[in-house]
Every structure is written in structure tokens, then in C-alpha cells.
């Protein structure tokens, strides 16, 4: 279970989050949407304690992670997998080494054969079979993102955080990634938090949709309810219309 209480964060003078509250039950799948630069990635990074809040609390399975030091956090982070917006692959390693990294670092030892098999499986799942030997630099942006996804799911964590997993992918691959997220969710009973700009994906992967607006959670509803909402701000976001004064001409 993930619980965020009264979370506030500012970078210098710029306030990004103010009194954000949310609660995500185990096994639940939540889509977070909101405008670009609205603080979605920042919120996600607080959930896994990559950032420390200025005020407020984050609880993972009832345990506050805000005042933990880096070493105590290692134990908490074993529950997590995270897909970064920019993939964040280790560029000194091959694709196979990237995906194998969490398995190699795990306390539970896997044999070389097991690791190889799991890596191949994970790459298969993200539609990139046979790319083991490639370097991250040789991959396209979308392929890198999928390798990042493979690296996050290979060790079957309990909580998966996806930061825009389908942004920049073609519609067919996006569709397969959405299906993969759903499959992972149902198969391993993981808690998933998916930050996305893609309305179709938000509708499909979330049991619930959260909208971040003006530093707060503005809306929190089941997908059917959310997409039927008549609230002007929600409506504007769903339909993707810019404010008149933001028009270029």
C-alpha cells in the first residue's frame, strides 16, 4: 500500500507540489495524468524516495520512508521497480547486462543460465527479442524505453512505477506496452502507478485515474466516471484543448 500525506515540495522558489494526498491499495492500478511540468515525475520520485519532501509523509506498507537514510531505503526499494521517463539505461553495459543487473545484484543468487533465461523472457515480453548484445546507444528512444521496462519487471517487484511508458512509441507498440502493463498487473498482482499523457492508456491500465492539477490531486475517480466528467478543467484535459490565450495565433 502506498500512502502520501500532505506532501509538499518546492525547488527553490518554485512550488511543485502542495499538500498532495493519495492512497493506493495493494494490487491496485492507478493512472496519474496532468499537464507537462505539473510535477508528475516529481510525485513518482517521492513515492520511491528518490526525492525528499519539504513537508508531509510517504508510507509504504505502513512504514514511513521519509526520514530513512539511503541504506535503510535499500530494503524498501527491493519492493519497487521503476521505469524512467528517459529510460535511464546504464550506457556502459549491453542490453542484456542492463536487464540482468537487478538479478545479479539480488541477495538471492541466480545461476548464469537462469539469468540468461529470465533476461530473454523479459526482452521477449517487451517485444525486443534477440537484442541482448546491443548497446543502449545503438537503440532508438522507444527501444531504450522498452529495455528500461524489461529491467524493471525482470525481478517481479511488488510495486511498479511507470513514468510515461508509452510516450514516444508508435501506436502499435504503445498498445502492446499497455497490454503488458495490464498482464503484469494481473499476473503478478503488482501495484502499478502509471504516469501518462495518453488518454487511451489511462483509460485502460488504471482502475482509477488521478489528475494532478495546480500542485494538487484535482480529480480521483474510476476511469468510466472520470472520462464522463463534466468538470471544465478535467474536460479540457481529456479533450486536449488549449486555453484561448495560449493559442499561437
Amino acid at each position: 500500500m502506498i500512502e502520501v500525506r500532505q506532501l509538499s515540495k518546492a525547488f527553490g522558489a518554485q512550488k511543485v507540489l502542495a499538500d498532495v494526498n493519495l492512497r493506493i491499495e495493494s494490487g491496485e492500478s492507478v493512472a496519474i495524468i496532468g499537464r507537462s511540468g505539473g510535477g508528475k515525475s516529481v510525485l513518482l520520485k517521492h513515492i520511491i524516495a528518490l526525492l525528499q519532501p519539504d513537508a508531509g509523509d510517504v508510507l509504504i506498507d505502513g512504514e514511513s520512508i521519509v526520514r530513512m537514510n539511503e541504506r535503510q531505503l535499500l530494503r524498501i526499494r527491493e519492493k519497487f521497480g521503476m521505469v524512467f521517463q528517459g529510460a535511464a539505461l546504464f550506457d556502459s553495459m549491453s542490453v542484456a547486462e542492463n536487464v540482468a543487473f537487478p538479478l545479479v545484484r539480488k541477495k538471492k543468487k541466480y545461476t548464469a543460465g537462469e539469468i540468461e533465461k529470465r533476461v530473454a523472457q523479459a526482452l521477449e515480453m517487451v517485444d525486443l527479442p534477440g537484442t541482448q548484445k546491443k548497446n543502449p546507444a545503438e537503440l532508438s528512444g522507444g527501444m531504450r524505453k522498452r529495455v528500461g521496462l524489461a529491467r524493471a519487471i525482470v525481478y517481479e517487484p511488488q510495486i511498479l512505477l511507470y513514468d510515461e511508458p508509452t510516450t514516444g512509441l508508435d501506436p502499435i507498440v504503445s498498445d502492446s506496452i499497455d497490454k503488458l502493463i495490464i498482464r503484469v498487473r494481473d499476473h503478478f498482482k503488482v501495484t502499478s502507478v502509471v504516469v501518462t499523457h495518453d488518454m487511451r492508456s489511462a483509460r485502460r491500465v488504471g482502475n482509477r485515474v488521478l489528475m494532478l492539477h495546480e500542485k494538487k490531486i484535482y480529480a480521483n475517480a474510476a476511469p468510466e466516471e472520470f472520462f464522463a466528467s463534466q468538470d471544465p478543467i478535467v474536460r479540457q484535459f481529456i479533450d486536449g484543448v488549449a486555453d484561448p490565450q495560449e493559442a499561437i495565433f
Partner: peptide, 23 residues
Amino acid sequence: AEIGTMRVTEQIDALRTLATHPV
């Protein structure tokens, strides 16, 4: 240069999420 590049490309954050202490 190497560690700095890892930091700006979020590779150090990725290490941390994979339960590995950067130190």
C-alpha cells in the same frame, strides 16, 4: 565525467531504484 553523466541521465537514480547504494 563518468559519474556526472550517470547523474544527469538519471542512471544513479536508476541504480537506487534497483536497490543498489551508489556508494
